[in-house]
Amino acid sequence: MEGGKRVVFVTVGTTCFDALVKAVDNPIVKQQLSAKGYSHLLIQIGRGSYIPIKSEGEDGCLVVDYFTFSSSIADNIRSASLVISHAGSGSIFETVRLGKPLIVVVNEDLMDNHQSELAEELAERKHLLCARPQTLYQTISDMNLDSLTPYPPADAQPAAKLINRFLGFPDD
Rank of each mutant, 00 (worst) to 15 (best):
E108G: 12
D59G: 11
L148P: 03
E117S: 13
N76L: 11
L145M: 12
V63L: 13
A131N: 08
I163W: 05
L41S: 04
V106L: 08
Q115K: 08
K30H: 10
E2M: 12
I73G: 03
Q134L: 12
P158E: 04
A74T: 15
V96S: 05
L42F: 13
T11D: 09
D75N: 14
G48K: 01
L98T: 03
K36D: 01
V96H: 03
G60W: 10
R78D: 13
I84K: 02
D112F: 10
V105A: 06
D75Q: 15
P152K: 04
G37F: 06
V24N: 03
C61Q: 15
D18T: 03
F166T: 11
L110S: 00
V63W: 10
L62W: 05
G60H: 09
N113E: 05
A119G: 00
H86A: 13
H86C: 07
Q31G: 15
K100L: 08
D171P: 06
L145P: 09
L98P: 01
I28Q: 15
V12T: 01
Y50L: 09
D112V: 14
V29C: 10
T149W: 12
Y151E: 04
P150T: 13
G60E: 05
D146F: 08
I45S: 02
G48Y: 00
L82F: 10
L118T: 15
L110D: 02
D171I: 14
V83E: 02
K22M: 10
S147A: 15
Y151N: 11
G90S: 08
D59Q: 14
H86R: 01
H86S: 10
N113V: 05
D109N: 15
S39I: 08
V21A: 08
A119V: 03
A131D: 02
L41T: 00
G99Y: 12
L110V: 07
T15F: 04
V29A: 12
L129R: 03
I53P: 06
G46C: 01
V24K: 00
F93D: 05
G37Y: 04
S49P: 02
I92F: 11
D18N: 08
Y137H: 15
V12P: 04
H127N: 07
F69V: 03
E124D: 13
K5P: 07
N76F: 13
I43C: 04
Y151W: 15
D18S: 02
E2K: 14
V29K: 06
H40V: 08
Y66Q: 08
L33N: 04
T15C: 05
A19Q: 07
V7N: 12
